[in-house]
Amino acid sequence: MKEQVPNPGNTPPASSKPAEDHRLRMVNRTMQLYRNQSHALIETLHTVQESFGFLEEGVLKYVAATLRVPLSRVYAVATFYHSFTLKPPGEHTCVICRGTACYIGGSGEILDDIREKVGIVSGETTPDGQVSLLVARCLGSCGLAPAGVFDGEVTGKLSPEVVLEKIGRWQTHDPQ
């Protein structure tokens, strides 16, 4: 193991409150599963993303120190892979599939409409913090093209109108 991170020390991030302990425990568990070896970095980042919703800087420092990976390497891996995000997500998440079948089926127009009418592109969150937009490479639901995922629920045969209506309801807290 050649990489030694001089600082910060091997302590949990200062920002962690008791409420976050559970989330950190999950992260620790993954790292221990791999005996804190540096090749566990990607698996660990998956866990961080799952439990925190995004890769928080303090946690990244903690992971770097525990796995003995340089800080810049952690950041490099975190930004190389598209599954990871460094920004906190919005209240709701809308994923639009941009696989070939969905693109042929018109998912490009849906994304254009969201950009024009809602004002966000992939990876962004509306200023009110309500809706995050993500683009998937392929959901594998090609039979339902164009498809999307709304807060974890796969929906197929989408149209710009249906998507905009859904987003609109999230933004106005319309429970329907």
Binding site: P70, S72, R73, Y75, A76, F80
Partner: peptide
Amino acid sequence: HTWDIMGR
């Protein structure tokens, strides 16, 4: 290892 490369 201060330097690395971010993004792709």
